[in-house]
Design a protein around this nucleic acid. Structure first.
Lengths: 242, 242
DNA sequence: TTGAGAACTTGATCAGGATCAAGGTTTGCT
DNA sequence: AGCAAACCTTGATCCTGATCAAGTTCTCAA
């Protein structure tokens, strides 16, 4: 019988997400999933799927960054989700993609063919439960984003974006916090419902006001996290760093 | 053994949504659900739950209209969901409300205590599957809304809102389509990320341009549905009326 | 029927962010 | 190293939708 690969890497690639589920999956289930998985790497800028495409797989992000977006006929577009390592891609029970999925940096995905994946997970309530949880997490993020898009000023939008990045990508170092932005200014504008010029100007303004330090264009240092929280205008109990 | 009430009303009140699921629920499951359900009516304007409140129930809308919203400390608020009859309220597996839920008109809900509800549904994959589906539907709606909030003009926002209402509440009558708006101008502005004045002006403009007819302030007639589709700037294959 | 409050409309002015335009930096390829 | 392309910044101007300010029309209860 084949040895099941339970190294951290494999575990992180379980499309039902890291630890939480793996700890509840039986060896048989893991073996089944192992048989149907395959890795694929996309260059920066590549399209993973287009809206309306048949979705024949689910996947999880191993490394790199991807975005979900919707666009209008005239070219206006809005990013509706940001996918970082360990995030899940796919719509159990749905046949067609509802958004464009694009690799923003070089992107490696761990794919699972959808049919066999669904067969494995279909009758296992703990996996279904995890899928509900994933969907609700995404829903919360989307609704948080609706507040941002509908009601926040440009400056607050930028601060909120930095906050999200800081929570997921930041590493603390004494009082201050370092992170590398996963998106270009252009992609940020798509995410925030702004133009690239406004993003650039507001970044400059936050720097001028000492909310952040910039090294080059992507490396950000936040000297005072609570200051950033204020700027984001956030209601949520986000005083803690995850 | 008590007679299980399978009248349309009860079926429509199954929080896992009407027919689709009930047809797959066993008699025992339905009986269990029946035991733990209770109805409650809220006057217009009443708060059903506030963000952060412990959620001790799930429910479905029997009649009336409710809204989900998030607000900022300074009072700015954004509606993040609209609940019409047959819609589901609740977050399986979550303890606290993530949004405010407010009755917009007189609202009747069919409640289920959460603990026993989860006990009934916990080990039944077909219910879990349905819950995934519900969550994904809401996610699609939220992301569609993100495009609206981030990229559409005021006029397009109004048209899109009318479109949504038309799809769910409209009744056809020859070429044209009648509907009664479920929200006040004020609530519309909260939904669309606009001010009440802008909503009023754009409604007037659409009327002036013959996209809609108004009888009083809530009764709308759409003489040409495809015209409305154009105005909404929608990409989706919405040529059909559900 | 009348009156009070809520809901809605309309107008004038203002401002935040978009648009247009030009120049500067970084990155990666040969 | 040198060049082109992509990426980013900054400035000037414009325009959509916000804000401020009256009015008008509904709704409903006494």
């Amino acid at each position: 019988m084949t040895q099941i690969d339970l190294s951290p890497k494999t575990c992180a690639n379980c499309p039902i997400r890291p630890r939480a589920i793996c700890s509840r999956c039986t060896a048989d289930e893991l073996l089944e999933l192992d048989k149907i998985k395959y890795y694929k790497t996309y260059p920066a800028g590549a399209s993973v799927v287009l809206m309306g495409d048949p979705m024949t797989f689910v996947a999880s992000v191993v490394s790199g960054v991807a975005t979900l977006s919707r666009s209008m006929i005239d070219g206006r577009m809005q990013m509706v989700g940001l996918l970082l390592p360990s995030d899940f891609i796919g719509r159990p029970g749905r046949d067609k993609a509802s958004y464009d999925v694009t690799a923003v940096s070089e992107l490696t995905l761990c794919h699972f063919h959808k049919k066999p994946f669904e067969k494995v997970t279909h009758a296992t309530p703990h996996v279904q439960e995890r899928l509900v949880e994933i969907a609700l997490d995404e829903l919360d993020a989307a609704r948080e984003w609706m507040l941002l898009l509908g009601r926040k000023t440009a400056r607050e939008k930028i601060a909120s974006f930095l906050l999200i990045c800081a929570r997921r990508l930041g590493r603390k170092e004494g009082e201050s916090l370092h992170l590398e932005l996963p998106l270009t200014r252009d992609a940020m504008s798509d995410y925030l419902g702004l133009t690239i010029e406004t993003v650039s100007r507001q970044m400059a303004a936050l720097k001028r006001d000492g909310v952040l330090l910039l090294e080059g264009t992507r490396k950000v240092t936040i000297p005072d996290f609570s200051r950033l929280l204020d700027e984001a205008g956030d209601d949520s109990d986000g005083a803690t760093l995850s």
